[in-house]
Computed example of a mutant assay.
Amino acid sequence: MFSFPRLILFIFHITIISILSVLHFKPLHAEPYGMAGCGLGSMVPVWKNDIGQILAATTNISFSSQTFGITSGTSNCTNDGIVKKEMAQEVFIAYNEAPLELETTKGSGERIRAMATLLGCPTHASELGKLMKENHSYLFAKSKLETEIRSKEILTRIKTQIASDKTLSLVCSH
């Protein structure tokens, strides 16, 4: 079934995952996981840096957990293979924060249109851009938070502003 080198690699992966799971006292939960994608590797919270993303991707490939997660809708995956909606929104903000902030000062741009699509109101991108421009200093208030936490904070602020807007609160499914 397994060749000897593959068996050793399999045992190594199981050992590393077990050790990391035991040493980490926080419950495992979904957080932004970066470019490695959904799957078992995305569930290990300590794998947030570049090396961790390589380990996450290797774990996903070795155990076919990404394929299983996509087909079953588990491990940060949805059953259609797309990351959960809010996770996609947070990841988008994390990787596009500076250009999105710049476009917000103008009230329009490619990233604002993409954000409108992610929030479920692609036909109202101009209204979203106007709202973001009016609330720019609130949405992008400077803080020394980590990228993942900051992207959640910005997303929460955007959604709060959408909820208080008569038009956008009705059309955006955020």
Rank of each mutant, 00 (worst) to 15 (best):
F2E: 12
F4A: 08
R6K: 15
R6P: 01
L9W: 13
L9C: 10
H13M: 09
H13G: 05
F25Q: 12
P32G: 14
Y33Q: 06
Y33H: 05
G34S: 14
M35N: 12
M35Q: 10
L40Y: 02
V44G: 10
P45K: 11
W47Y: 06
D50E: 14
D50P: 11
D50W: 13
G52T: 02
G52D: 07
Q53N: 08
L55M: 12
I61K: 00
F68D: 04
T74K: 13
G81T: 11
E86R: 14
A88L: 09
V91F: 12
F92I: 06
A98R: 13
P99F: 13
P99V: 13
G109Q: 06
I112F: 06
A116K: 02
A116T: 01
T117V: 09
L118V: 04
L119K: 08
L119F: 15
L119V: 11
G120P: 00
G120Y: 08
A125D: 03
G129S: 07
K130N: 09
K130D: 02
L131T: 01
M132L: 14
K133P: 04
S137C: 02
Y138G: 00
F140M: 04
K144Q: 01
K144W: 14
E148K: 14
E148I: 15
I149N: 04
R150N: 10
E153A: 08
L155M: 08
L155F: 01
I158D: 02
I158E: 03
T160G: 08
I162S: 04
T167G: 03
V171C: 05
H174E: 00
